[in-house]
Amino acid sequence: MDRLRAIAVIAKGVLLEAIRRKDVYAIVLICCGLIGLTMTVDFFDIEGLTKFYREIALKLMDTFTAVAVILLASRQLPREFEQRTIYPLLARPIGRLTFLLGKIAGVCAAAGFCLGLFMAIFIAGITALGGGVGWPLFLQHVFLQMLQMLLLATACFVLSLLCSRDAALALAFLFYFTASLFSGLTVILYDFAGPAGRAGLWLLTYAVPQLDLLDLSEKAVHIEIWPPLGWGTMAALAAYALAYSLALLAIAHALFRRRPL
């Protein structure tokens, strides 16, 4: 119970700091501005073209939430070390795992805060345009996005413990923005690879978390065609994201424990 309370306190600190700092607001404002701009675009005076808005708005929501998560997660630990604020924190009876969990929970809470704001704007926009939200697929998309943010946040913590803050930021952005490319490329390359190359591609597919697997936006755009995912698939995706997040958390914890204060 004490551990849970400690995690909640640390998470709250991260969330408050994220809200207090102006960059999250800037991200939210820019995204909202772009979503609003998309709504105003008039194509041939034809009304009811909602798929374009849906596609752009979902893509913006997902991307800007990921940007907020990467910026927050990658600098949590480096800043604690630079400003030496980690010493008074760890001087209390808080384990390093608890500390890490609190930080990750805080980053995920901030991601939820951003995504919640974006969702409200998206729903208002799509309603104003006369389109349907497609609730089942939309909520599944949001759920999978939160799992993706958890995975991304833990990966950022590992990267920030492995290399400098700037390098961690760059690698995290690369990891996120090439996720879709990576999944498509492995399939194409596999046909042309030799036995060693194929083994390498197989290993990469299972060793590197597939962020693209947690992106349901393509189906959420075409809501009139695709039914919601089954419970079995949702459970498998949740298990996939949690398993990789736990593995990354274990790596981050091992690195953090070995790090001299």
């Binding site: 492995t186 399939v187 597919t205 075409h222 698939t233 498998a236 995706l237």
Partner: peptide, 30 residues
């Protein structure tokens, strides 16, 4: 698909249709 169960998940998450089946065609308005 060499990816096994990961490939199966991709076929569930992404809009996918067996290529041997006739293609879906939506209204071109969008």
């Amino acid at each position: 698909d060499f990816r096994g169960w990961i490939g199966d998940l991709y076929r569930e998450v992404k809009p996918w249709r067996d290529p041997s089946k006739p293609h879906l065609h939506t209204d071109g308005r969008e």
